[in-house]
Amino acid sequence: MMDFVHGALATLVLLTLVKSAPIVYAALGGVISERSGIVNIGLEGMMTGGAFAAVVASYATGNAAVGLVAGVAVGALLGFVLGYGATKFKVDQIVAGMGINLIAAGGAAYGLVLLYNQPGASPQVHALGRWYWLLILFAFVCAFALHHVLYRTPWGLRVRACGENPRAVTSAGLDPLRFRLYAAVISGALAGLGGAFLSIGEVNIYSEGMTAGRGFIALAAVIFGRWTPWGATGAAVFFGFFEALQFVLQGRVAWLPSEAMQALPYLAALVALCGLVGKVRAPASDGVPY
């Protein structure tokens, strides 16, 4: 019994890290875009795009590192689509984000059939192997970096100002739209990295629906973490923990259905959204075109 407990605990800790990392990446992406004033509902699609592109590039070149870069690039590209639409055409960011989700999911499914002639999942490709532990670590480095950039650099101050009061940025002689565009691209890149982690980090294939709502969980983490990098990271780890717990407890605890844990991140976000765990306030100009 004790052996099982020890084993399970060790598994739980490691699994929590593995399951948290992609959510942390996407959540940090959500933080930066929302702090700049762009709501990113498209995180899920950007993760999907990153996951699929990573597999395609790794398959084509036989090199997982290239796959990783491709994942980040496609995520960034989708972020650019959202950012460009939001700044140049003042699109409704929610609607555009939903569109990006549909395009990414449909595009990946279309690509699977077209490239590999097999619906549902890609062939096996070269994965990152041990490097993916580094990638887990890097997620937390990113959290630290984003915190530093947002709160300790002029650039970060300006990004936050764009999310609160873009007019103030304009009157300071700067173009808020440019900051928003950059933030959206970085947001997409981070989500793409999270997606690539899923496909060529954790496993070595892309399978349809593999992001399984993690982009939306990340969105929940952003809210639960009150739009701060460390807060969102903490929430992402919290949600990752429950995902890991689900694996460890599988079939062992009959009274707690796994669906309850699946629903947990969303319920937590709803509770936070209602302001039941302290004051939750989105950036004042979040989602408002300028």
């Binding site: 960011q93 555009a96 279309y110």
Partner: peptide, 23 residues
């Protein structure tokens, strides 16, 4: 032609129409 192309098309329609403000 993979039927998933349909979803890409739907997504593009949404993206294009997002340029109009509804809400």
């Amino acid at each position: 032609v993979p039927k998933d192309a349909i979803h890409v098309i739907e997504g593009c329609i949404i993206l294009i129409l997002a340029a109009r403000r509804y809400v």
